[in-house]
């Protein structure tokens, strides 16, 4: 039997909103460690990895490891029915082909349950090697979302360059070009407004803005985003989820032919 209870149910709603447009179907793996998911988008250009550690839930029981194949659009439909303040319980019995979502209002005066059919999904689990990155940028997630949105009105791709001057986001399109430079800024009153750049090597990589805008849907989950870049690796765009875990988006770069 598998059962988890999360008082802050809005968190699961935000997770689904962040990934439902990127991935169609995914296997959610439930183990003693926690609730996790790894899936690629249909073009195999981006990969999303989610981890919600068991300690982060108010209640977590997993008698044996199970993998639940779920259509994310359908799961998002169900989670949309939960109130923002609702307590969410997810439950699956061994050997059944469905998972139950229960929503309780904070005052316990409304209790709903939804049963979602599980699917058989043949998905490949990729090994993501530990890597040292040439540059790691931490910045306000809302600022990153704004930059990706603004640049996508000019061009289709973004060049992210990290130098000792800061991090530069550039694009070009039919109407012209755009460059946005963010400098390191640690002298802010609130740590969530800081921009911190750790650079070992200068790095410059090109990515499709369409995917960056999709990743930015995770902005409500975290006030800061971490962008890790290396010249020979996919970029990692990470949003930490409270004290529970993370959602990481990996995106393969575009390279000169």
């Amino acid at each position: 039997m598998f059962e988890l209870r999360l008082e802050q149910g809005s968190l699961l709603k935000k997770v689904m909103e962040a990934i439902k447009d990127l991935v169609n179907d995914a296997n959610f793996d439930c183990s003693a460690t926690g609730f996790s998911m790894q899936a690629m988008d249909s073009s195999h250009v981006a990969l999303v990895a989610l981890l919600l550690r068991s300690e982060g839930f108010e209640h977590y029981r997993c008698d044996r490891n199970i993998s639940m194949g779920i259509n994310l659009a359908n799961m998002a439909k169900i989670l949309k029915c939960a109130g923002n303040d609702d307590i969410v319980t997810v439950k699956a019995d061994d050997g059944t082909d469905s998972v139950t979502f229960m929503f309780e209002s904070p005052t316990q005066d409304k209790i709903s349950d939804f049963e979602l059919k599980l699917m058989d999904i043949d998905s490949e689990h990729l090994g993501i090697p530990e890597a040292e990155y040439d540059a790691i940028v931490r910045m306000p997630s809302a600022e990153f979302a704004r930059i990706c949105k603004d640049l996508s009105s000019i061009g289709d791709t973004v060049v992210i360059s990290v130098t000792k001057e800061g991090v530069k986001f550039s694009t070009r399109g039919d109407i012209g070009t755009a460059n946005i430079v963010c400098r390191q800024n640690t002298s802010v009153d609130k740590p969530e407004e800081a921009t911190i750049i750790e650079m070992k090597e200068m790095v410059s990589l090109t990515f499709a803005l369409r995917y960056m805008n999709s990743f930015a849907k995770a902005t409500p989950l975290a006030s800061q985003v971490t962008i890790s870049l290396s010249s020979d690796l996919p970029v990692v765009v990470e949003y930490k989820i409270a004290e529970m875990g993370y959602i990481r988006f990996y995106l393969a770069p575009k390279i000169e032919e």
Binding site: M40, S43, H44, V45, A46, L47, E124, H125, L126, G127, I128, P129, T157, T206, A208, L233, P234, Y250, A252, P253, K254, I255, E256, E257
Partner: peptide, 14 residues
């Protein structure tokens, strides 16, 4: 002209 790399060019199946 840019070539879009794939995730599978970097990460392998377990």
């Amino acid at each position: 002209p840019c070539l879009q790399k794939k995730i599978l060019d970097y990460f392998n199946g377990d």
